[in-house]
Nucleic acid binder design. Structure first.
Lengths: 111, 111
DNA sequence: CACGTATATAACCTGATACGTATATACCTG
DNA sequence: CAGGTATATACGTATCAGGTTATATACGTG
């Protein structure tokens, strides 16, 4: 877990992940899409790969990178207790609002 | 969004958030729980507060810090497209497994 | 096999940041 | 109001991460 956030802290890396969300991409494609230098792209991909965010396959001279879900799933898991926290708060807010005016507006959990 | 990850990249800050998950805490309490120096705690709290992760209220000489949900909710929102990505993958995996052996196990979306 | 393309790595520089020490500010109690 | 407690901030330092430039490696094609 330790490094997941550090890795995502880098805007360019997040941008790369965003690109890979659509489909696998070559280094050159990323380089052009994000207007970054080739060594920079390679370095970030190295970091992302070491951390398991992406994997690559070789196609002739190209390397095609694609997303791997695991690290982001861990992030999702890390978030879980906080989700409980804020849903608790939203419930409280809702109850509060329900008490404020006696006319019940859109009811919870039922559109 | 930009800085959310950078802020969470710091392990001590994540630890502080973890503490605040249970209940609001004074600076001194955090200092002792996490065995960090007082200036360090104050500094991290400053960063967390500036980014909206926490808020404080004054009680005599103490300042009690508590969690604010918004930034983590944004993080949750950021994660959404990736969740779609991996659930798509898990579905594919499931279909694959279903093809492997013809005995259908627990069925999708219906417990 | 020489050359171009695609990607990775090395070396170096620089800016950001986290820590510790020291000090300032605020509040409470006798 | 003096002294203690609680927290914030200033400052100096060391570490680290990201960018650029230059070079290495690998593959394809004439």
């Amino acid at each position: 877990m330790e490094s997941t956030f550090a890795i995502l802290a880098e805007p360019n890396r997040r941008a790369i992940l965003g690109l890979l969300l659509e489909q696998e991409q070559s280094v050159g494609a990323i380089e052009r899409s994000l207007r970054m230098s080739q060594p920079s792209v390679s370095k970030h991909l190295r970091v992302l790969r070491d951390a398991g965010f992406v994997e690559s396959r070789v196609e002739a001279q190209r390397r095609l990178y694609r997303l791997r879900p695991e690290p982001l799933m861990e992030l999702d898991a890390w978030l879980a207790p906080y989700r409980r926290f804020w849903s608790k708060h939203l419930d409280a807010l809702e109850r509060h609002l329900a008490t404020m005016d006696r006319t019940p507006r859109a009811r919870r959990k039922k559109p």
